[in-house]
Amino acid sequence: MSVDLSTQYLGLKLKNPLVVAACPLTGNIDGLRRVEDAGASAAVLPSLFEEQIAHEEAELAKVHEFGADSFAEALTYFPQPQDYRTGPEEYLELITEAKRALRIPIIGSLNGVSTGGWTRYARMIQDAGADALELNIYYVATGMDESAESVESQYLELVEAVKQSVSIPLAVKIGPYFSAMANMAKRLADAGADGLVLFNRFLQPDIDLESMEAMPRLVLSDPWELLLPLRWIAILYGRVDVSLALTRGIHDSQSLLKALAVGADVAMVASVIYRKGFSELGKMLSQMQDWLAEKEYSSVEEFKGCMSQENCPDPAAFARGNYMKALTSFTGKPI
């Protein structure tokens, strides 16, 4: 029995629920081709990083200005500035090229720091031909006087502003660190998000004990990381009117199935490709198909959300559940 693997994400019809997340693999046309060939149904490009653009602009300006106009023999130290592509040109070209070369939908991704940057670059990504846009918001609120409320409203203002400047579907990728995640999800949806991507993983500083220095470090995800987004998708499914994408810890067909079971429209992968190669995607898809067929599901849509909080036999499990259960089973064990 054949199973219909297609799914709807951000209003896009995807041939299956396996999407490659924003990562360096999707940052060039060769990588994107392999993503498509491996069977993924869509690709999210790496984030266009406004801070990086601004930083490079400033650095290049500094390079040209450092030591300049100080000494009669050396008024400058570099050739006249050319058209340096510190800006988004390269990124936009990649979108255009990918659209030409690939059949699967291409989702642009944007990480901004200023309202101006968010909206300007969002429009550029749309104009370059992206099928959808993923806003990647990650803000470390280090200010002692910065309240959760003010941080949240910044998020919402941003989403509103971007939504107003583009017409393509808009997904918002956020971290799990909200006191009231459900409420935040609802407000993001109200602000105009067409989808939520749970959850982003950013680099965290690590410590080098030899040099006694802090250094940024990005590690691949581990399977256990699945549990956090799994819970929140389960909770949100059916309660907010947005597409849901689960990213983090999808490493095999089992986790893929779990993501769909709690209600994700798509599951996004990256680390697994780094760990096991592109071929793993095909394996995950066929194993998923076999499992669904064996359990006599006719389509992903049918399966989707069956284990969400709404539909699962024990809804309380997602609210507090696992801890209590673990404790019970532990104490219940004979010593």
């Binding site: 023999e73 050396a74 008024l75 400058t76 130290y77 570099f78 050739p79 006249q80 050319q82």
Partner: peptide
């Protein structure tokens, strides 16, 4: 060539941008 403001010499490495090797 540092003193005259960064012109390429035969010591300038491959790929580096310098005046006259823009």
């Amino acid at each position: 060539y540092s003193n005259t403001g960064g012109q390429a010499s035969k010591s300038t490495p491959r790929g580096a941008v310098a005046k006259f090797a823009a």
